[in-house]
Amino acid sequence: MGLLKTNANIAGPDEFYSELIAAHEGLTKAQSDALNARLILLLANHIGDRAVLSEALKAASIRHSS
């Protein structure tokens, strides 16, 4: 553990966030799902490191206790 950067790492977080949301504007749910999937795959390929990817999958799977 500890390979995945979870500290603030994007310069200009607001700009990135609006760019991400803007990319989905006008898309149907299916188109948005497809875009998300392509994005995840491209980013995963960029990262490449299997250990980091596994950590990210774990980190993303937050289960909320109710």
């Binding site: 299916a30 497809a34 999937a37 392509r38 795959l41 491209l42």
Partner: peptide, 23 residues
């Protein structure tokens, strides 16, 4: 459904980016 979304995404990317073809 989601596994189909990812599968199709791999295929669409593979058309444009060689690096995605191994998947």
């Amino acid at each position: 459904d989601m596994s189909r979304v990812f599968r199709d995404a791999v295929l669409e990317l593979a058309e444009h980016y060689e690096g995605m073809r191994p998947m």
